[in-house]
């Protein structure tokens, strides 16, 4: 049982990084970004391109089967994905905002971008699964009955550090305070001299960067496929809703609940229905506590 919980937390680490972007777009731009999965996938594939450009493999850190080459590639990929996302915002979402399009039109545009994104990845990299490197997970026994792969521990550490960095950014920097103010009340934020265009830009950059980390880590321990992000979309949405929309920390908590539940579904032999478990959890929480675990009523 402990084993399944541990596996669930590794998955939770990845979906929470993806879902934070979803949560921030939801709070600041106020729409459900159905293209978030493709941002995750784009990040993973950009990292693949930089791994190939650097030509140094993925490296290693002691028992962990990836090292600085993958991390450096991931850093470049964060910049590349952010640039791409800003371009899409400038071409499409900004125009819809300027036209005062409804929230539904924004969701629908995101839905279109998601479908196009998946197929552009297929065009660029082919539809077959790719790996950064030939990776065989080697587990070590941490406690009796609890075996963990060093890479999984590294992933949890990277996710925890990313969330901590985000927390410091949101609570200590001016931009972070601007973001929270805009999420709370955009009109009041503008009246107080906050340039919401800059806030929106930073929202996309942070969301895309965290999504790139999620994609790269997922790509490392599983594989890269054009649909890799799309198949994470439902767990990410479930994490967002479970934790409570409007609360980034709630999203992380939601991700842990979703990750562990999906892992427990595997434990009781329902591995084929993992994503349905996320969906059922989501419907249940909407029925009982629509504001989510940590959310406040609107």
């Amino acid at each position: 049982m402990m084993q399944y919980v541990a596996d669930g937390i590794v998955f939770a680490a990845i979906i929470s990084l993806g879902a934070i972007g979803l949560s921030m777009i939801y709070n600041i731009l106020r729409f459900a970004n159905f293209a978030q999965g493709e941002i995750v996938a784009a990040g993973a594939y950009f990292a693949l391109a930089f791994v190939a450009l650097l030509g140094a493999g993925v490296g290693a850190m002691g028992p962990v089967a990836f090292g600085w080459p993958l991390l450096v590639s991931m850093g470049f990929a964060m910049a590349a994905t952010s640039t791409m996302v800003l371009l899409v915002d400038w071409l499409l979402f900004r125009q819809l905002r300027d036209k005062n399009a409804s929230r539904i039109a924004l969701i629908m545009a995101a839905f279109g971008v998601s479908l196009m994104g998946r197929n552009i990845v297929t065009l660029a990299a082919g539809g077959d699964p790719i790996n950064y490197t030939f990776y065989i997970p080697r587990s070590i026994e941490l406690l009796p009955g609890l075996r963990l792969v060093p890479d999984d521990l590294a992933i949890i550490a990277i996710a925890a550090l990313s969330v901590l960095a985000l927390h410091l950014f949101l609570s200590r920097t001016t931009m972070g305070r601007w973001m929270r103010a805009t999420a709370e009340n955009p009109t009041l934020a503008r009246i107080n001299g906050i340039d919401t265009r800059v806030v929106i830009r930073w929202t996309w950059i942070i969301g895309a960067s965290l999504a790139t980390i999620a994609g790269t880590l997922q790509g490392h321990i599983v594989e890269l496929r054009p649909e890799m992000g799309f198949s994470l979309l439902l767990p990410m949405f479930a994490a967002l809703i479970l934790g409570g929309v409007g609360n980034v920390y709630g999203t992380v908590l939601g991700a842990i609940v979703v990750g562990v539940s999906q892992s427990l579904a595997v434990a009781i032999g329902l591995s084929a229905y993992r994503e349905a478990v996320a969906f059922m959890l989501m419907l249940a929480i909407l029925l009982v506590r629509p504001q989510g675990l940590l959310g406040e009523r609107e």
Partner: peptide, 27 residues
């Protein structure tokens, strides 16, 4: 479950239904 809430929730939940039906059909 979802139509009392903000419109995004219907979008997310109907997406979930489509994924779930696909899983049921496959498994």
């Amino acid at each position: 479950v979802t139509l009392r809430l903000r419109e995004d929730y219907l979008a997310i939940s109907t997406f979930g239904i489509a994924v779930t039906i696909q899983l049921l059909a496959l498994n």
